[in-house]
Design a protein around this nucleic acid. Sequence first.
DNA 1: CTCCGTGCAAAGCATTTGCATGATG
DNA 2: CATCATGCAAATGCTTTGCACGGAG
Lengths: 144, 144
Amino acid sequence: MDISIDEFTRKIRSRGYKLTPQRRVILEILIKNKDNPLTPEGVYKQVKISCSEVGLTTVYRTLELLRKIGVVNHVHFHDGCDRYEINDGKPHHYLICLNCGKVERTNLCFIDKMQKILEKDTAFKITEHCLSFFGYCRFCQLRK
Amino acid sequence: MDISIDEFTRKIRSRGYKLTPQRRVILEILIKNKDNPLTPEGVYKQVKISCSEVGLTTVYRTLELLRKIGVVNHVHFHDGCDRYEINDGKPHHYLICLNCGKVERTNLCFIDKMQKILEKDTAFKITEHCLSFFGYCRFCQLRK
DNA sequence: CTCCGTGCAAAGCATTTGCATGATG
DNA sequence: CATCATGCAAATGCTTTGCACGGAG
């Protein structure tokens, strides 16, 4: 287990933010779903399932806060809503099937290399990136 | 000039879609803005500037149509709206400054290679991808 | 006591849909 | 002239904001 809640709570506190029960619950859910980027609505539902109570507004605000301090990443599946995943320091990239919606994760990555070259070439200081691939999974290829 | 409107209109017609004046205007605008992914609203404004009349709904529908037949790409800048750019066959990737919003384009790309390996490893058939980098441009780095 | 965080309700936008009208091949 | 495309208005859905209440230090 390379993700600990303590590590993240430290990060939150060190920035002067309080670790409220709501923030803790949301963090736990994100850690539990580390392989599955959740929408704010998805986080909200999981909160209910775990028998806790957190307002949807708070979910939105917390996710944005966590993103700002680098605890979660922002991901897009082109389906009209934002998704968030815990940032464990490894690159996460996704394969999204345009037919069945299946999502596969891959951590194959040339991005580090690409990022370094880009930073040198452009003098940009890169802090985040977002990469998703879209296409058809092996089953949907057959079904067409 | 490596982008011709005829090339795209052929693509549209060959799929059984009609080439209406509205679609033509939108195509022209996308070609004119090939270095600058536009939001549907942005396309709509450009239409007005060029003294044409196209409903916003039609803009949405046309962009989605063009995306489906591979004429435009879908891009995300994490700012709450979709963006579209003409697909000239070259990879387009972006550097988005989180401070001033400046967007730079780069076509440095390991994605082709990455895509081939991914397809082999996962049996996914990849048809699109979306890659953006976020960070701070050289000016905003100094201003902080 | 002062802040910061929360949660409700309402507002704000981007996007989609229903439907009657209009244009195209 | 049948079909597909358009455009308005309304609906939808995700996200943000205003504001009063509540809790921690």
